[in-house]
Design a binder for these strands. Structure first.
Length: 234
DNA sequence: CGCCAGGTTGTTG
DNA sequence: CAACAACATGGC
């Protein structure tokens, strides 16, 4: 588990997830390794985490840019604007009707449950904070964990389709294992370190895009060798 | 043109 | 409870 991380880390270096959108640019800034996110940045991460559900990131960037250019980018804005107009703004991200509804729901959650203080979620124990998010319609385990890890700095490992594909192909578990099982596996096999969790997930995505596509599986995969070497030198 | 992308929910057997 | 459909745009 750690061996794979080290290998990916050497290959790809620091990923500095989660990115921020400034102007028309998507930036991965090292400073986020050091400091906490501002409430505005957390809200952007929440928004991005919802918009990126089963969607390519560049489409999400387009949607976020449109929202910002329209001056619609706060929980209050999301609650005020008619859902049809919100949907139109986020159209490039796909599933725009569903996602507009989800953004409305999270904005409502921030006002009601969090009393308008987005940072207050961080004061709850991880289990409770996670449950609050999972209870919302439209927030599943990956979205919740992305928000908790990258937005608030809770130590949860984010599992996505890439994570399952890469590690099932490497033989760690069956492709369609339960989300929680996979998460536990990583969290038990790694030091409980937020920066490690953040980087590892980002590295898995990077690697999967290059070497672990659905088609042409395992072509040029250098991770198989890592496991093989570990095996014979163990 | 077909496949896929940093999922989640609702329905069905 | 597993399997499947529905949701939708943009890039290759």
């Amino acid at each position: 588990m750690v061996e794979i991380y080290n290998e990916l880390s050497v290959r790809y270096g620091q990923r500095n997830w989660w990115p921020v959108i400034q102007g028309d640019e998507c930036l991965y800034l090292p400073e986020f390794q050091e400091r906490k996110r501002t409430p505005e940045e957390i809200f952007e991460i929440i928004t991005g985490a919802i918009l990126t559900q089963n969607t390519a990131w560049p489409n999400v960037v387009k949607a976020i840019i449109r929202l910002k250019q329209a001056g619609i980018f706060s929980p209050a804005d999301f609650e005020t604007i008619p859902v049809s107009e919100l949907a139109e703004l986020i159209r490039p991200a796909g599933y725009f009707n569903q996602k507009a509804k989800k953004l409305k729901i999270i904005a409502c959650f921030i006002r009601n449950d969090l009393r308008g203080d987005i940072l207050s979620l961080e004061k709850f124990p991880l289990i409770e904070a996670r449950k609050k998010l999972l209870d919302l319609w439209g927030i599943g385990p990956e979205t919740a964990d992305s928000i908790l890890l990258y937005g608030y700095g809770f130590p949860v490992f984010v599992v996505d389709a890439y994570t399952k594909r890469v590690f099932s192909r490497l033989g760690f578990f069956p492709e369609k294992s339960d989300y929680e099982e996979v998460r536990q596996l990583f969290e038990k096999g790694l030091p409980k370190d937020v920066r490690l969790y953040r980087e590892y997930h980002a590295l898995i995505v990077e690697f999967a895009k290059e070497f672990c596509r659905k088609k042409t599986p395992c072509d040029g995969c250098f991770l198989q060798n890592v496991l093989f070497n570990k095996c014979i030198f163990a």
